[in-house]
């Protein structure tokens, strides 16, 4: 039995099935990301002035990812437009570029995540604090080195009331530490503070959406493209739906980048 309105529009709504479905799905996504962004903004605005961690994220990398995602949105449109003009090779080329750009986005994001998981705050037994990127010393199980870090002694630590004041201390190339001198240490993972917690939730959820988009677009680009021969209109509709989803993923990042990286 054929399911009606897969390729043609339903007379009362003027839309084919998948289009109604994707808009309902995107509406639920607006609620999901809206709740997360609202939580972030409420936390950020209610924080004491100067106390909110600022400058933890790499702005040039975030900006590069924004450019990549915006460019991938236009290549997704060009892929769909190629199908509309019966140019299947054009679709393959543009959709392929979209998938590649999405993979580059995820690669940059995973580099940023790795950086955060290697960034530590080390509390020493004498009350001093070291903040920077941790590396183990080969052949010495009792030693670590903090690269490009800040060494804040106990007296200076009492003067620091806000996160940004760390930036006023001179950064050191490498700070060797004996593990026996360490009281505790914690990386900038999700449990570090409210900022890293919500940063990892929002960007992690967004990254999952990117991965989902890559899977769908790769299916349409590869094995799913066989439908172009049997039902080209339905295949074009599928490319349109994937494009709508991809624009939404772009839209979420358009909010995530300034809110998380710049404010």
């Amino acid at each position: 039995m054929d399911i009606p309105y897969n390729s043609t529009a339903r007379p009362d709504t003027g839309l084919y099935n998948a289009k109604v479905g994707i808009w309902l799905f995107l509406a639920s996504e607006v609620m999901l990301f809206g709740a997360l962004f609202s939580s972030y903004i409420l936390l950020r605005v209610s924080a004491d002035p100067g106390a909110w961690p600022h400058g933890l994220l790499n702005i040039p990398l975030g900006m590069l990812n924004t450019f990549i995602l915006i460019t991938s949105s236009i290549t997704a449109v060009m892929g769909w437009a190629s199908l509309k003009m019966n140019n299947f090779a054009g679709y393959k080329r543009n959709q392929g570029i979209t998938i590649l750009l999405a993979i580059v986005f995820i690669s940059i994001k995973s580099y940023e995540y790795t950086d955060k998981f290697h960034h530590y705050v080390v509390q020493l037994n004498n009350g001093d604090v070291v903040d920077g990127h941790l590396e183990r010393v080969k052949g010495d199980t009792n030693a670590i080195v903090i690269h490009e870090g800040y060494y804040v002694n106990k007296t200076d630590m009492t003067q620091i009331t806000h996160a940004w004041q760390y930036r006023q201390i001179a950064r050191e190339e490498s700070i060797p530490i004996k593990l026996t001198d360490v009281k505790s240490m914690e990386n900038f993972g999700p449990s570090h503070n409210a900022f890293t917690g919500i940063y990892f939730v929002i960007t992690g959820l967004h990254a999952l959406h990117i991965i989902g988009g890559i899977l769908v677009m790769a299916y349409l680009w590869g094995p799913g493209s066989i439908m172009w021969r049997t039902d080209p209109e339905r295949f074009t509709n599928r490319a349109e739906i994937a494009g709508l989803y991809w624009h939404f993923v772009d839209l979420v990042w358009i909010f995530a980048f300034p809110v998380l990286y710049l404010t």
Partner: peptide, 21 residues
């Protein structure tokens, strides 16, 4: 002001969102 910097970022993001959507 945190409120002002968020408001500016959100205002530009809303214009971009309007263009995308």
């Amino acid at each position: 002001s945190a409120f002002a910097s968020i408001a500016i970022a959100m205002a530009v993001a809303l214009v971009e969102a309007f263009l995308v959507a």
